[in-house]
């Protein structure tokens, strides 16, 4: 089998006189190697990595490599989580967190899209908005906490406001970039068929910016949960973040793991939902990895 031979196994022969390998083998190889992008994995395929990780972790806990004081075993955490779910504790904390996160997400989403449209479609909008958002982008959301506390107090208003600003940036940046890169030929077409400004926004600008919006939305979903984790350490009596803080004080690593798992599940579920939405909204595209 010439194909499996190492280069050193092959006698140096001239290209012209070297015998050709069997034809069929050549054909098979060339077809296989022509695929430039990997086949897409199903959702099950994507779970292989995490599953292996959890198994290794469980094994390490069971044989005693991992002390429960440092990190609880996944099975212990699962039992704890299930008990908390049964006594209703978990649900209340979860709802409190979700409410903050999604209020901020919804607000940031609307404001981000409106700002992107104003900046992308009007000159005065571009002049007044874009620079401001770019500066906001350079300032980490969490650096705004002191100011936000002075202005809005330490309650939920401050938390939702900060999540909103965290969410707004990726939505704005990506939607705006997509708007600016809409093919000028479509703009020209819109002129020749006599679209009104409103029709242009509805039929050309918005759909054209949609792929960018979804990129922004996926980042925003992550951003809203990330901000939440930090914000919930400030003056809360409810929420996943509060739960984890209290667990830290008592050294309950199993509850901390439950909290982490909830954040992970929420993050993944949100991302999954956004992707499903994206697939439906962008059904007209045949894109790699979809």
């Amino acid at each position: 089998m010439t194909l499996h031979a190492k280069p050193s196994d092959i006698a140096p022969v001239s290209v012209v006189t070297a015998p050709l390998p069997a034809r069929r083998v050549i054909a098979r190889r060339s077809i296989r190697s022509r695929r430039l992008t990997p086949r897409t994995l199903g959702p099950a395929g994507l779970l292989i990595g995490p599953a292996v990780l959890v198994l290794v972790w469980e094994f390490a806990s069971q044989v005693g490599w991992l002390s429960p004081r440092l990190l609880a075993a996944p099975s212990t955490a699962a039992v704890t989580g299930f008990e908390m779910l049964l006594d209703g504790d978990l649900t209340a904390h979860f709802l409190a967190s979700a409410q903050r996160a999604y209020a901020g997400l919804g607000l940031g989403l609307v404001i981000g899209v409106v700002l992107a449209l104003l900046a992308g479609l009007t000159r005065s909008g571009e002049a007044s908005i874009d620079g401001a958002v770019q500066i906001k982008r350079a300032i980490p959301t969490l650096a705004l906490i002191p100011l936000a506390i002075l202005w809005l107090g330490i309650g939920d208003a401050m938390k939702v406001a900060l999540i909103t600003t965290a969410v707004l940036v990726p939505i704005y940046i990506n939607t705006h970039a997509a708007l600016r890169s809409i093919d000028l030929r479509y703009v020209e077409l819109a002129r020749t068929v006599g679209l009104t400004r409103l029709e242009f926004v509805r039929k050309v600008a918005l759909p054209g910016a949609l792929p960018g919006f979804f990129t922004g939305l996926r980042l925003a979903v992550t951003a809203c949960w990330t901000s939440l984790v930090v914000l919930e350490q400030i003056n809360t009596t409810e929420g996943i973040g509060y739960l984890m803080n209290r667990a830290r004080d008592y050294g309950q690593t199993d509850i901390i793991v439950v909290g982490l798992a909830i954040y992970a599940i929420l993050g993944l579920a949100s991302d999954f939902a956004v992707r499903a939405l994206e697939r439906r909204a962008l059904a007209y595209r045949k894109v790699l990895g979809s």
């Binding site: 030929r185 479509y186 077409l189 819109a190 020749t192 068929v193 006599g194 679209l195 029709e199 039929k203 050309v204 759909p207 054209g208 949609l210 962008l282 007209y284 595209r285």
Partner: peptide
């Protein structure tokens, strides 16, 4: 007037009939 370009210049996110009815 109508303009016919070298590329068909159909909006990819609008169906065939929606493209025809633009404007």
């Amino acid at each position: 007037r109508s303009v016919l370009f070298q590329d068909s210049r159909l909006l990819p996110w609008q169906s065939v009939i929606e493209n025809i009815l633009l404007g």
